[in-house]
Design a protein around this nucleic acid. Structure first.
Lengths: 127, 127, 127, 127
DNA sequence: GTGGTCTAGACCACC
DNA sequence: GTGGTCTAGACCACG
């Protein structure tokens, strides 16, 4: 009755927004691509249409998608905006991470080294 | 009426837990140290005693503090647990970060390099 | 003013947790069943909503129930977990009992025999 | 600074009472034996003298110990009472156990069998 | 309507 | 005085 694709720690609509942003950054969604209709997206995700509506509205506010009355929602054709989104997400995530680590008391060396080692392992291993 | 030490994006009790954990990791709170009484901590932070109560209960569940009825709450004397806490926080934060970055489509190189550069800048600059 | 379903020797929230666990073990609550809403459960038991909230939170931590924001709380659909709960409760109760009896100085024979006889009587008698 | 002989789930004074009762039942404390003075017992256990006082008072109320002004506290010389104590504890513990198990939905067979098996194991094993 | 959080204030057992 | 629990009632984000 309800998809377990989402966790409870964060609002579903935020998780959906993030997922779409990532699909854009990874190129799975391209400029001008049509997004599923609100209803379709809702049933696909086992989610309330209100929730999807909120997602699309928010994406519009972020200038990532635009809604054309009677036609549906589309990824913006402003490629510049999409490149910018990539950088925004990158900076945002890195800044948050560094701030968290610093406040917890880890040194710059520990941070860089920790990240480097984790990536070596995961690369050597599975992902 | 209420100290603005906290932001609205996350429950106060979680912010307090995190703050105490960080104080422990940074050595500002040591094994065996007494935490302020529930009421004291409450007034210090302009927060309701129930909120502090919840914080202390949770810290006890995490085996970071223990509570002695009628005496107060204390940082655990299990130094091993405190060392472990440091590693736990480190791993947790790094893992989350890497997972987020990977899912957003950034390569290992981009991740390490991004972190390294940000740290050079902040070191050269303010922090 | 307050239903006397509960006794004073143990916190109400613990008594409610235990009651729900037992309903699950006895099959009165099945995987996926919806629990009453926080408010509903509160009035049903003549108890404050906060108390019920705590119960549901704890049940979630025990992986016995899960909560879907805006939808309600449900018994987990992980049937395996529910079977495990039965065994957990069984072992826990037996272990505690045996530990108590041993520490009080009763021999294994006395324990088994004592239990056996009590059960014969109660079976012959009322229960 | 404080002995960790006690847990937080139950009042210390009740834990001390139970411990003394058990020592009596197991014969480690015999009729007429002198109990340590309040002060002595307090320091031995890293506990507040008030707490010990409460223990002795309660033991007196249970007719297990008696206090002689200026002399100290002693286990009662009423051997009959001590035998009775043994039976009381036995019955009490068994009844509580059976009631718990029944309410959780376990059958008489399951209860007896569960206890029997656990005892075989622990006997074969360490204890 | 649903759960999540928080405040205000109370009472209790315990040390 | 200290923690533990509970009530009463409120507000918010979410679905």
């Amino acid at each position: 009755m309800m998809s377990r694709t989402f966790n409870n720690t964060q609002p579903i609509y935020l998780q959906m927004i993030r997922r779409i942003c990532r699909q854009v950054v990874r190129g799975e969604l391209k400029a001008g691509d049509k997004l599923p209709s609100v209803r379709e997206m809702a049933v696909q995700n086992g989610v309330n249409p209100n929730t999807v509506q909120r997602v699309y509205t928010e994406l519009e506010r972020l200038a990532i998608a635009e809604t054309r009355r009677g036609l549906g929602s589309f990824i913006t054709e402003d490629e510049e905006r999409l490149k910018q989104l990539r950088e925004d997400l990158k900076n945002e995530q890195i800044d948050t991470f560094i701030k968290d680590m610093s406040e917890t008391g880890f040194s710059a060396e520990e941070i860089v080294e920790g990240v480097r080692q984790k990536l070596l392992i995961t690369k050597a291993g599975r992902v």
